[in-house]
Simulated assay, not measured.
Amino acid sequence: MAASQPIISGAPILLEPGFKFRPTDEDVVVHYLRPRAMNAPLPSGFIVDVDLLSHNPWELVPEGSAEKYYFSRRVTRWPRGNRRKRAAGDGHWKASGKDVPIFSKGLNGRVTLMVGLKKTMVFYHGKAPFGENTEWVMQEYRLAEAGLMPGRVMRPREGGNFGKCGCAAAVIAKKNDELSEALRNAIANLNKVPILVNPDDSWVVCHIYKKKKKCAMPRVVAQSYNIAGGGQVPFFDFIGQGNPERTASSSSSLTGPPSGER
């Protein structure tokens, strides 16, 4: 199912019982999608790669789960075209509504910039443009504007050597198993330099879930409401219009003088 293995920074985050993975739109774009598009380390391994077009949505959401996030690549219909393939599994994905912009201060820390777009799609069983509507929904996150700006990523030096004192550091790191994670990362970065990388705009994050059904009003409640009003909904006609059976009694009781003042 997985197309490739993302780079994870440190050990995967283990949540306590009762806690769930609930990222905001900004978290998805800034902390997961943008690093994945630059092949940079990710904060955790909750989102993995998948070939979305090879599966039906119900095959991607594990049994007992309500939703799932995946990395995937958008594929164009033609080599030089901009239109994307939407056929997947036994059906196709169809866009619903307009794209929603996603803003963040994470790239510069001062000015709020648009970093991505979110598109909602519904899965149809069958070939486009026909097909049967299903309850499966996908929110597709993609980079846009500031999210596509080049970013600095640590890459190995050319030649692959540590320099004069790098060999000693490598030997220490290999023999000492009790080194802290921060020290191991520092030693590993001795042979890396920051370079500017352009994000790959073909990467997207897909949030797949099943739409919840709306609960209808119970018939028992509706029947008791009608019976309480004698089969009709009682009301006072303050402007003298509406229910002809109650207009006369309502207007006389509201406009006529009290019996004691005649």
Rank of each mutant, 00 (worst) to 15 (best):
A2R: 11
S104P: 03
L53C: 01
S259T: 08
W203C: 11
K127A: 15
G231I: 00
R219E: 15
L33V: 03
T120V: 13
S224C: 02
D49Q: 13
D51Q: 12
I13T: 02
N108G: 02
G10C: 05
W136R: 06
N133R: 14
V50P: 04
W58P: 00
N226F: 10
L107V: 12
P234Q: 03
E135R: 10
P129G: 07
P150H: 06
P12L: 01
L183H: 15
N82Q: 12
P41M: 03
A128P: 14
V197L: 00
F130G: 14
A88I: 02
L143T: 03
I239Q: 14
N226W: 06
G91S: 07
G230C: 01
A216W: 00
K213T: 12
A128V: 00
N108W: 05
F235E: 13
V75I: 13
T112S: 11
D237F: 04
E261Y: 04
V137E: 04
Y69Q: 04
N161I: 14
E181G: 01
S250I: 05
H31M: 04
R83W: 01
E261M: 04
T255H: 07
P156L: 06
E178Y: 14
N161D: 15
K105M: 11
R80D: 15
E132L: 08
N226Y: 02
A3T: 15
P41E: 02
V30P: 00
Q223W: 05
P57M: 13
I47P: 00
R22N: 13
V193G: 03
